[in-house]
């Protein structure tokens, strides 16, 4: 059916189509980013509910004082494939926040599950003023707006493994990549911190996490999760990935069924085609 030349040509085409963005990223001096084992990686990947709840706790107690998540509605937190909060929990949570509503008395009202996560600052300028001129990025899709660069030719394998966890890997590396002091000879501007993976190394955000900073309550199974910067970073990265891609679990489940179907249908089509062409020399 296919001769050698055909296969070579196919490989050339695959290579051509695969030579995409990563080649560009390969250029700049890319800091090494340690890839983590994420529960949501791979064909059967799903979010770990407990991890998302812990990540949400960090987001709420630490990050959300500066970072918004304008695309996230409170109701999302109770939707399947997410942190798995109950409807009642979400209702109570939403009610703790004040939502700007021009039709409400006084312009604000308590939140309801349908509301979006309120921004910590009214305007972009307010956000900059409160953060030394730097704008804390919105978290809604941040985990998909960051990536990891692999050296040639290793990024080619990503197309076959479906590696889509570059965002959380980067965020984890960033949160664990702070140094108390900049290396010798690095001119760190006033008010900035030194970070291994942040482009240019001088980051406006001071190290946001410290060991033992947030108290985790042990889960029902009694397993105690370590309260370390590394663990906090993993949890909040996972949570940010969920915010960016809340439908990931459903998408992969559907995809698995679609692929099974396609393999079955391809097999049948192959047999049908062969049967029809039987007796025709071609």
């Amino acid at each position: 059916m296919f001769n050698t030349k055909t296969i070579i040509a196919a490989l050339a085409m695959v290579a051509a189509s695969a030579l995409a963005a990563p080649a560009a990223q390969a250029a700049g001096e890319a800091p090494h980013i340690e890839k983590q084992d994420w529960s949501f990686a791979g064909i059967f990947g799903t979010y770990d509910e407990n991890q998302l709840q812990r990540g949400f706790q960090i987001f709420r107690e630490v990050c959300s004082s500066c970072h918004g998540a304008r695309l996230i509605a409170f109701r999302n937190l109770a939707e399947p494939g997410g942190p798995g909060f109950s409807e009642a929990q979400i209702k109570a949570l939403a009610a703790e926040y004040e939502i700007a509503d021009s039709t409400a008395e006084g312009g604000v009202r308590p939140g309801v599950p349908a509301d979006r996560w309120p921004s910590p600052f009214a305007t972009e300028q307010d956000a900059r003023d409160a953060n030394g001129g730097a704008l804390p990025p919105d978290f809604s899709v941040l985990a998909k707006a960051r990536g990891v660069t692999d050296a040639f030719p290793w990024w080619l394998t990503n197309y076959f493994t479906g590696y889509s966890e570059g965002g959380p890997d980067y965020i984890h590396a960033l949160l664990t990549g702070y140094h108390d002091e900049a290396p010798e000879g690095f001119d760190l501007p006033e008010g900035k911190s030194y970070n291994d993976v942040f482009p240019g190394h001088a980051i406006g955000m001071a190290p946001p996490l410290m060991d033992e900073m947030i108290a985790y309550t042990p889960g029902e199974d009694g397993v105690e999760v370590p309260m370390t910067v590394d663990q906090y970073s993993k949890d909040v990265s996972a949570y940010m990935m969920w915010m960016a891609e809340p439908g990931l679990v459903a998408r992969k489940e559907t995809g698995f069924r679609v692929l099974l179907f396609l393999f079955l249908f391809a097999g049948l089509m192959w047999a049908t085609k062969r049967r029809i062409w039987k007796g025709i020399e071609h």
Binding site: L142, K144, A145, Y163, T254, L259
Partner: peptide
């Protein structure tokens, strides 16, 4: 042809794009 197509759609929908387009 649909097999690699579905692979990307369901398991790596953003891999052919660029992360910066989420900013």
């Amino acid at each position: 042809f649909l097999i690699p197509f579905a692979w990307f759609v369901f398991f790596a929908p953003d891999i052919l794009g660029h992360p910066d387009n989420y900013i």
